[in-house]
Amino acid sequence: MLHAQERPEHPAASGLEDFVYSEEDFVLQGVGWGRSRPDGLASRTVSRFDHALQSGWERRMKQGLFRYPLGELQTRILPGEMHFVAQLNIQRGLERRKPQDIQSVRQRFDPQQFHFSKIKPGEILFCLTRSHSPHVPAGGQAPAQDGAEPRLPETPNRVLVVINVSPLEFGHVLLIPDPMLCLPQVLTQELLHFGLEAVLLSTHPGFRVGFNSLGALASVNHLHLHGFYLDWELLIESAPSKPLCPALNFHLLQGVPAPGFLFYDEGRGLGVLARAVCRVTDYLVENEIAHNVFVTRGTAPGEPARSAARSGVRVVVWARKSCFGAKEEAAFNVALCELAGHLPVKTAQDFQSLTESSALHTIQKYLLPAPQLSWLQDELVTLLTG
């Protein structure tokens, strides 16, 4: 539990806490979806990480640091084989910051545009800090001194956990390396490693982490991951796959709204996993191919889909058509959530009329043609095995 000092003054005066963790904090067993409730939820122990994130997030909501209040979102599962989770989120469509003008997957960081060095100190929940020691101090964190100013990460073993002021779901946060590094939105092995670990620090099977590249609806060209809770199971957690390179647990995900490249790990080789994923995303960046990445708990490839266990981590990489300039008006934009089967919808009319067929039609407009995907598959297998 964090021992944050409650301060009555403006939220920007709050000091930043360190949330220190080690591999001993990873939850590798007993995480899964319950079957006794219609929404698939089950009572579960809240992890130390979940408590810190959720309590801090809710406190910022009460303090009015978000662009709009977010209550429980109206949700419906679209009939059909894909089990799309559609949610009505009108305010996000109206209130979110205007996306930056992006013209290249490799576009340089522009200090004249909005970037995360400009966030308010009160928007920072804590500094997620990896301990190199097998033992974390009692309380699991290094308490900030009273009156201390928020501290930015000084070493690669830290990232900031910051509220997304235009949330798409409960607990929506950003994982950001030291903002003063001014890194463009190109995924790094170090940041992805933190995202993988964050998923395993949660006891909630619906805590997901993701990345949008430039040209794949990233709205800010400053390196960050998204993290959020979704209380609904997604098809990609258990969908079948075709082995491409079994030695690296590299597969082609099938039977889902958007075919993607799947990596899997049981939580014991996250550094190796992050390195393999970033070899793929680096290749995509070099070749100006837009992409989205989604990290979720899921079944091992080949494991029966009906299995409720979600002990390992699935990482899905979607290579897709680039989307530069103004976004096309549709019921939803196609980024990491939508490719995964979670559809935040902008209007009540679209929410009521949306069908699986119309959702698939929208998504498929942004997918690579089958011949190009097949060519890319061969290229990535050669890259990973060579």
Results as ranks from 00 to 15, higher is better:
residue 10 H to R: 13
residue 11 P to K: 01
residue 16 L to I: 10
residue 25 D to P: 05
residue 37 R to Y: 06
residue 44 R to F: 09
residue 51 H to N: 14
residue 56 G to T: 07
residue 57 W to K: 05
residue 61 M to K: 12
residue 64 G to M: 09
residue 66 F to D: 08
residue 69 P to G: 09
residue 75 T to L: 11
residue 79 P to A: 15
residue 86 A to W: 01
residue 86 A to H: 03
residue 91 Q to K: 10
residue 94 L to V: 15
residue 103 Q to M: 11
residue 105 V to P: 01
residue 108 R to H: 14
residue 111 P to M: 08
residue 114 F to W: 06
residue 115 H to T: 11
residue 124 I to V: 15
residue 124 I to F: 06
residue 127 C to L: 14
residue 129 T to E: 14
residue 134 P to L: 14
residue 134 P to W: 07
residue 134 P to V: 14
residue 151 R to H: 09
residue 155 T to D: 14
residue 155 T to L: 11
residue 158 R to L: 10
residue 162 V to P: 03
residue 162 V to I: 07
residue 170 F to Q: 13
residue 173 V to G: 03
residue 175 L to V: 05
residue 178 D to E: 14
residue 180 M to P: 05
residue 183 L to Y: 07
residue 184 P to K: 12
residue 188 T to A: 13
residue 191 L to P: 03
residue 193 H to E: 12
residue 200 L to A: 02
residue 202 S to D: 05
residue 202 S to V: 04
residue 205 P to F: 01
residue 208 R to A: 06
residue 211 F to D: 00
residue 213 S to A: 06
residue 215 G to R: 00
residue 217 L to P: 07
residue 221 N to W: 05
residue 222 H to W: 12
residue 241 S to E: 04
residue 241 S to F: 06
residue 243 P to D: 12
residue 245 C to H: 06
residue 249 N to R: 06
residue 259 P to N: 07
residue 259 P to T: 05
residue 261 F to T: 02
residue 264 Y to Q: 00
residue 264 Y to F: 01
residue 266 E to W: 02
residue 275 R to W: 10
residue 278 C to P: 04
residue 282 D to H: 06
residue 286 E to D: 07
residue 286 E to L: 10
residue 287 N to T: 00
residue 296 T to S: 13
residue 299 T to N: 12
residue 300 A to Q: 07
residue 304 P to K: 08
residue 313 V to K: 00
residue 316 V to S: 01
residue 316 V to N: 02
residue 317 V to H: 00
residue 321 K to W: 00
residue 326 A to P: 15
residue 326 A to Q: 10
residue 330 A to K: 03
residue 350 D to K: 08
residue 356 E to C: 13
residue 359 A to Y: 03
residue 363 I to T: 11
residue 374 S to Q: 13
residue 376 L to M: 09
residue 377 Q to T: 15
residue 384 L to V: 06
